[in-house]
């Protein structure tokens, strides 16, 4: 993809992901009066004091830095909502809760630039850290499911940053599996893989059965 810092291992840097995340819309309450702004990505404003309006994150951060607005934290970033999400994440084994695609980056941007606008900052920060840890652990354990017969894992609601962390590893793993599982390596892939799996799953029983057969033959 264009703009990638290292196309060889198909990795965006975290800063690049953050840059993409800055296009997300966020609500601000300006304290200035300003005409609407017309950009290629859309028109924003007009800006009137105390009248909430939606702008991209980068614009919100720029206005915030100049002290021209207050950023309203998004709805999902409340202690109640995050506690719910964390509970739900802990309850399920492989499913991910729907969170914004860029939740890691957005929360970091808000913590960095607008920490005074977030109520219960400390709690929110801890909750998001916890959620991220739980989700990442889940992601890891679902990647363990990949093997020669499972070439795809269905993962819904994985966020941009989480995907980016596992991407180089995942791509390489799938390449290796593809290489080792190619038809020229295994002449009749279905039966071989199946037999292999059977042998792996219940090795001892097969052993026993075989021994039994030999016993029968001896008789």
């Amino acid at each position: 993809m264009a703009g990638q810092s290292d196309p060889h291992i198909s990795l965006f840097s975290a800063a690049e992901i953050e840059f993409v995340a800055e296009d997300e819309l966020v609500e601000i309450v300006p304290n200035i009066s300003m005409e609407p702004l017309n950009f290629t990505c859309g028109d924003f404003g007009p800006f009137r004091p105390q009248m909430p309006t939606e702008v991209p994150m980068w614009l919100a951060v720029a206005l915030k830095k100049r002290g021209k607005c207050v950023i309203c934290p998004p709805q999902w970033m409340s202690v109640d909502k995050l506690t719910q999400v964390l509970e739900a994440e802990r309850d399920t084994e492989y499913a991910f809760e729907p969170l914004p695609f860029h939740y890691v980056e957005l929360s970091r941007l808000l913590f960095d630039h607008a920490h005074e606008d977030i109520p219960d900052l400390y709690m929110v920060r801890t909750l998001i850290e916890d959620i991220r840890d739980v989700r990442f652990h889940k992601l890891e354990s679902s990647l363990k499911l990949i093997n020669e017969r499972v070439n795809a894992v269905k993962l819904k609601n994985v966020s941009a940053m989480e995907m980016n962390i596992v991407r180089p590893f995942l791509v390489r793993t799938l390449q290796s599996f593809y290489k080792l599982d190619s038809p020229q390596m295994i002449h009749n892939p279905v039966t071989t893989a199946y037999r292999q799996a059977q042998a792996a799953d219940r090795g001892p029983r097969l052993e026993l059965r075989r021994r039994h057969m030999i016993d029968l033959l001896r008789r």
Binding site: S176, L180, I186, T192
Partner: peptide
């Protein structure tokens, strides 16, 4: 013909370990 599946079994087992440790 058994080498192919042998490699596959070896890689599958080791890849999970690498994933966990990395």
């Amino acid at each position: 013909r058994t080498i192919g599946s042998f490699l596959l079994v070896a890689f599958r087992g080791r890849y999970q370990d690498i994933l966990r440790k990395a």
